[in-house]
Design a protein around this nucleic acid. Structure first.
Lengths: 338, 338
DNA sequence: CTTGGCACTCAACGGTGCGGAGTGCCAATC
DNA sequence: GATTGGCACTCCGCACCGTTGAGTGCCAAG
C-alpha cells in the first residue's frame, strides 16, 4: 500500500512542517529534500497518503499537514531517537551533579528538560515503594502532639503530625521510637507496614489507644503515594509557537497541567525505563490535550518514577525523545549514586 | 484640580472597564452610573482626567481606558477593600482546616486564592527566621555520609546530606547528635548559629575536620532562606481575558512566573500583615510584567511570609484585595494554631 | 458651569477583485 | 504501470474601499 517513497514523503512532510510550521506543498518538498522525482509524482503520493489518513489539508489550496496518525507512523517507523551532542551531555551531567538534595535534583532536572526541548517539562518524584526505611524519627511537639519523620535510604523525608488521644511523656516517646525503629529500620517500605501492625498487642492496654494513633500515621507515611508529586517547568514555551499549535487558546492546556492527576496518568503509561513512550494528540485521554503530545519515560533505579515533556503535536519528536532519554539516564545514575 | 465629580467619573470608568473589558464612553457612563449630568459634561471631565494622565484612549474615536496612574488613584483613594461573603469565609475556613501539614496548607491556600480571584495566585512559604529548633536529627547513611534533618516548631523540616572527610562510627554520630541538640534545641533559629560555632574547639583535634564539615551543613540549614520557595496556581487564568489584557502574548508573563526570584521580589515589598500592597503595571520592576498587577500581603504570626495574586492591570482590585486579605488572615490563624 | 448641537475622526465591518500557492486530473512519455 | 508536464480549478490572503457608528472636541447658548 505504502511503498518506500511514500513513506519518505511522509517523513519529509513531518520534518518540514515541524521546522517551518507551515503546510508543506509538493513543490517545496522536492526542492528541499531532493527526492529524485517531479512534484506531480509527489502529488500522487500525497493523495495516497491523504486517502490513508496520514496527512490532511487545512483547506483546499494549501499544502499538507500530518495528522495524529501520520505523526504516529513517523514516530514508530520513520524516525530514530536523536542522540544529544557530547557538549550537551557534558552540560547535563555537570548541571545535575550540582544538586544538593533530592528536591534539588528534581528541580534541576525539570528546568533542564524544559530548556533542552523548549517544551513544557514534567518530572514526577521518584517513588518510595522500592526504597527502605533508613530511620523513623518521632519528635514530641507537645503533650498530645507528635511529629513523625520518615527518612528513606533514597534520601526522601516525609513528615506527619499526630494528635494523640492522651498525653505522653518524653520517655514514652523515646520508647515508641525504639520500638518502631527496631522493627522497621533497614526494611523495605513495602514490608515495613506488615512488621508493625501487631505492635499494639505488645503494650499494656492503657497505652494502646495512643500507640494505635501513632501507628495509623506511621502506616500512612509508609504507604503514602508521594510519587504523586509532580513538578513543572517551561510553561512559557506553550505560548511560543504559532496560533496553529493550539487552536484558539492555550488555556485548556494550562488547566490540564494544573491537574496533577491528569499529568500522572499521562506519565503513568510509562513502565519500562528502556523505552521512550509517545502519546500523540487524540491519543491523550484528557480533553484539553487533544492537540498536545507527550514524550515520556521512566527513570531511576526502580523505574517507578517518570519524566517527560509536553508540547504541540507539531513537535520535534526525535529531539524530544533523545533529550528525555538522556536526561532520564543521567538522573537515574545520580539517584543511584546518592 | 480634580473635583469630586471627576473622581467619581474615574471610579466609574475603572469599574466599567474592569467589568466589561471595553473602553468606556461618555454616554454609556451616564446611563450606567446615573450621574446627574449630561454626556457633554462628562466629556469635559474626561478631557481633564486625560490631561492629568489618569485615563487614555486606545484610538481617537474610542472610549477611555484607565492608565496605570488611574488605577493607582482608584486603589489609593476611590475604592475600599471588598469583604468576602460569609459563605465564602466559611468555605475558606473549611477548606484550609482540612490540611494535614504545612505543605498541604500552602498548596490549599494557593489553589483557593486562584479560585477566589480567578487570577494567578502566588504563595511564599512561611519563613523559618522567627521559629525555633525543635530537633536536629543526624542520621548515618554510610561511613562517610550523614544526613542532617532540622525540625522546627513551626513544623518545617529541612534536610541535607553531608560528605565527610573521614569515616565516622554510629557512636560518634550519636555523640554529635547530642552535642548539637543540647546546644540548640528549643532555641530560635536566629540564635542557634552562634551557639554552635565554637563546637570544634571542644573536641580532640583529630575529630575536628569532621565536625567542621557537619557544622558547615548545619549552619547552612539553619540560615537557609527556605522562604525563597514559592508555589503557583491558576496560571490558566492568564489565558482567560481578552487579547487586550496582555499585548500580543502571555509568554513574558509566564516566563516571569517561572523565575521565582522575580516573584519573591514582587511579594517581598510587603512587610506589614495589616495592609494589602498593590503594584500596578509599570510599577513592577520586571520587564515582562509591565501590563500586570500584583496584589499581595504578608501573613503568618511572624509576618515574614507573603502571598498574593497576579493578573492584568485590568483587575478587580477591591475584590482581589478582599480575597488576599481574608485568605492571609485565615492562613495566619491556622499556622498559629498548628 | 452645564448642555445640546455639530462636525470630525477613525476602528470595525462587509464586499470586491486579484495574485499566488497548491491541488487534481489527464494525456503523453519512458 | 509509473512518471511527468500541462492546465484548469479552488480558495486563502491581501489590499482596497466605502459605509457605519461610536465617540470625541468644540462652540455657542442657556
Amino acid at each position: 500500500m505504502l511503498d518506500d517513497r511514500k513513506l519518505e514523503v511522509l517523513r519529509a512532510i513531518v520534518e518540514d512542517y515541524v521546522s517551518t510550521n507551515e503546510p508543506v506543498g509538493s513543490k517545496v518538498l522536492v526542492e528541499r529534500h531532493h527526492l529524485g522525482v517531479s512534484p506531480a509524482t509527489i502529488r500522487n503520493d500525497m493523495g495516497a497518503l491523504e486517502d490513508e489518513g496520514y496527512i490532511t489539508q487545512p483547506h483546499t489550496s494549501a499544502g499538507r499537514v500530518p495528522t495524529d496518525k501520520g505523526y504516529r507512523l513517523f514516530v514508530d517507523k520513520l524516525s530514530t531517537v536523536k542522540p544529544l551532542t557530547p557538549a550537551e551531555r557534558r552540560a547535563i551531567e555537570e548541571f545535575l551533579r550540582g544538586a544538593v538534595d533530592l528536591d534539588d535534583v528534581v528541580s534541576r532536572t525539570v528546568r533542564l528538560l524544559a530548556q533542552l526541548t523548549r517544551q513544557v517539562a514534567v518530572v514526577q518524584y521518584p517513588s518510595l515503594s522500592r526504597s527502605s526505611v533508613r530511620h523513623l524519627e518521632i519528635v514530641r511537639l507537645s503533650d498530645t502532639r507528635l511529629m513523625v519523620v520518615l527518612i528513606t535510604d533514597t534520601g526522601r523525608v516525609e513528615q506527619r503530625v499526630v494528635e494523640l488521644p492522651g498525653p505522653l511523656t518524653e520517655d514514652e516517646v523515646a520508647e515508641l521510637r525504639t520500638d518502631f525503629n527496631s522493627r522497621i529500620a533497614g526494611r523495605p517500605l513495602a514490608d515495613a507496614a506488615s512488621l508493625v501492625t501487631d505492635l499494639p498487642e505488645t503494650v499494656p492496654a492503657a497505652a494502646r489507644p495512643t500507640l494505635i494513633a501513632v501507628l495509623a500515621t506511621v502506616l500512612e507515611t509508609l504507604v503514602e503515594r508521594v510519587d504523586e508529586r509532580v513538578v513543572l517547568a517551561g510553561t512559557a514555551n506553550l505560548a511560543r509557537g504559532s496560533a496553529l499549535d493550539f487552536p484558539g487558546t492555550i488555556r485548556p492546556v494550562l488547566e490540564a497541567l494544573e491537574e496533577h492527576v491528569v499529568l500522572l496518568r499521562l506519565l503513568g503509561d510509562t513502565a519500562d525505563p528502556q523505552t521512550v513512550h509517545v502519546s500523540i494528540g487524540g491519543e491523550n485521554p484528557h480533553a484539553g490535550l487533544q492537540t498536545a503530545s507527550v514524550v515520556s519515560t521512566a527513570y531511576g533505579a526502580n523505574a517507578l518514577a517518570s519524566l517527560g515533556v509536553l508540547g504541540p503535536t507539531r513537535m520535534d519528536y526525535p529531539g524530544a525523545m533523545g533529550a528525555v532519554r538522556a536526561v532520564a539516564r543521567y538522573v537515574g545514575q545520580i539517584l543511584a549514586e546518592a
